[in-house]
Write a protein that binds this DNA or RNA. Structure first.
Lengths: 106, 106
DNA sequence: AATTTTCGCTACATATTTTGTAGCAATACC
DNA sequence: GGTATTGCTACAAAATATGTAGCGAAAATT
């Protein structure tokens, strides 16, 4: 019950979806969740490599945010999805299927 | 068959999901799809208002991109989702349900 | 026909976000 | 003590987003 007060860019309505749009609308957020799907645990540096060598600055900024929002967590094994992160990851898998069809039409 | 060549930030793999992450990872993209869901047609100015008065510069940039990617289109009635946009919108609705539960846990 | 309103934007200067490179402090192993 | 790996920070430069003002075209109103 800690981060309900986190400010949400571009919306004062307090609608949860707006909080999600805020964080997911930042570069690398979805990619990070994506790379951690199927319950892998990755170190900071492994995660960097998976994300096309994103700069450590950018990665860390995003990781901080995702941790605050309880989507990922960090322990001795590295970074991994929380329960919430895993659920969100499943949505991304759905989007993956869709995106493949969409891309063919482009 | 026109925009397969559009560059994708942060990925050279050509995986469709990466193209999606690229565009959706920019501010206002998801919000725009969201506001156009349930097949409304909105004028540029109406859309601006709906999106918490996003600047016209930002809005227009995003609209151009979303049009190129065939997610939205523009006609005499204003801006509206394409077939693909509508499908993507449905995924966002799913995320909305999820986000509500998630937000409560924060 | 003249005026007003609404349309989709553009210009441009400023602010915010993201990036890339280098490297540091802490811990583990040899 | 040296070497390797960890997570991460500093900092300057590049890219992206913002806010305000207003333009030119078309449509509606008087």
């Amino acid at each position: 019950m800690i981060n309900r007060n986190r400010p949400v860019r571009g919306s004062t309505s307090g609608r949860p979806i707006m909080r999600l749009f805020d964080v997911m609308g930042k570069r690398w957020s979805m990619r990070i969740i994506w790379e951690l799907r199927d319950d892998q645990s990755l170190t900071f540096r492994q995660l960097r490599e998976r994300c096309d060598d994103v700069s450590p600055t950018s990665l860390n900024q995003r990781l901080k945010e995702l941790r605050q929002l309880r989507l990922i967590e960090h322990d001795d094994n590295g970074y991994q999805l929380t329960q919430w992160g895993r659920e969100l990851g499943k949505h991304l898998l759905g989007l993956n299927t869709w995106a493949t069809r969409w891309d063919k039409a482009l």
